[in-house]
Design a protein around this nucleic acid. Structure first.
Lengths: 245, 245
DNA sequence: CGCTCAGTTGACGAATTTCAAAGATGGTGG
DNA sequence: CCACCATCTTTGAAATTCGTCAACTGAGCG
């Protein structure tokens, strides 16, 4: 199956996850939408009773305080979807922003909640993706609540790496990261200044490096996991879908 | 419809939420399970491919770091459910602990993913409950990342109050809170000591009071909302289900 | 060439944790 | 009924972490 999806920011083309295949097989004629880097697709408080299925590129779910402080709730990668709202709860709790140029499609209840067996299988996958979304949000919350700056930063890099790898978007510890330190700070709950200090230290300690602007390489996965307080094997089980064999 | 559910810690009997009604109408003969205060129903890393629907009492989703620090990801109230795992992602990312004596039932995919219209309606409700769960987790994450101790604490009290009210478990700003300051700290990411300081200050400022041990009264909802950086009306829309009229 | 924006670094101050100890409170067994 | 125990709350003082402010650097771009 070939799709008219533009290449994103990845260093290699994404292998589509099973959920994207499933959904696009079911609805082959759905319009694919595009968003430019920096564009907001949804704003907090908007009416929303559907979901977004990300096909290519990076997006962020975020919330903002009255004083302008922003927190990124979750980073979305190809194959992820956001349950934005539902008919009895139709208000979006988060904004959705494109971190890179991105393409996506809109998933409505009618296109997923039908009685057909195909849809039942789709729902099984959707539930699984939801579970992994919750799992990584929980990990993030744990670190925002109880961990140091170093641990949070290490965690963020590790989460992204672990998720990018099965998509073919990271290899040999190296991946492109289309986020400024400001945005990384919004993700892990630190000031941009402190993100810089923390990452510099990781760099000086030989744990990560910076082969090109916008790219990261993890040189010592073991050490990074230790700093992030992560058991990699368990972590992968929690936030990745089992590969259909 | 009358159910053999023991009264929880509430100061008034809970009116069951629509989702509980719906599910129990659909499966009237399901065993209701009980858990004693402090008991863990699920541990992080356990195999899990089903969900828990809380009928009565309080539960907490939590995660623990290797050094023993714990973060409460979400507090569950009657009518909430947790999507613990799914067939392609069958590992529980959180532990589930009873904060008070509680009763619950187990919700499996077979009991929700069928083609029957009743199940489709149940799924609509489940999706809505999921949306509200995500909404409050996002609010919490925002505060752990970007807010002061006062704001976090105020938020926690407010979230619980707003959720308890439509269940008939809070009236006139007053509700019972079966959590020690230690646990509140695990929820909002503060040390028990600082929770104490912060709540004492709110008390001295006449914003909350403490009519009895284990009970809280919000005396100045307006002020508490301001401290928590919350727009109450919008907040209610995001974390509450629309009442079926 | 100069502009802007992201990253970097230092110095300082504020918020929170940790450590320690002293009240409450409730439950339990004598 | 009381004494004791464990647990929770409260408060103070010291130590730490991180945010803010400010200045400088470097890369990309018109």
């Amino acid at each position: 199956m070939t799709l008219p999806i533009p290449s994103g920011t990845g260093i290699a083309p994404a292998r589509f996850s099973s959920i994207v295949d499933e959904y696009l097989n079911l609805w082959p004629h759905l319009p694919v939408q595009h968003a430019a880097k920096g564009q907001f697709i949804v704003d907090e408080g908007d009416f929303a009773d559907s979901s977004i299925l990300l096909l290519d590129g990076w997006m962020a779910l975020s919330k903002t305080l009255p004083d302008g402080e922003r927190q990124i709730i979750d980073v979305l990668l190809p194959g992820d979807f956001v349950l934005l709202g539902a008919s009895v709860a139709p208000v979006a709790a988060c904004s959705v922003e494109a971190l890179s140029d991105a393409s996506y499609t809109v998933l409505t209840p009618e296109r997923a909640n039908g009685p057909e067996p195909v849809m039942a299988r789709l729902r099984t996958l959707l539930a699984a993706v939801l579970v992994t979304t919750q799992a990584r949000t929980a990990e993030l919350l744990l670190r925002l609540g109880k961990s140091s700056a170093a641990s949070r930063t290490a965690y963020a890099l590790l989460e992204l790496y672990v998720r990018l790898e099965p998509l073919g978007l990271a290899s040999d510890g190296r991946f492109s990261l289309p986020m400024t330190q400001q945005k990384i700070g919004e993700f892990v709950g630190l000031s941009n200044v402190h993100v810089c200090r923390t990452m510099r230290r990781l760099e000086r300690d030989g744990i990560i490096s910076h082969p090109a602007p916008g790219e990261i390489r993890i040189d010592d996965l073991e050490a990074l996991s230790r700093i992030a307080d992560i058991d990699l094997a368990l972590f992968r089980e929690e936030i990745l879908l089992r590969r259909p064999s």
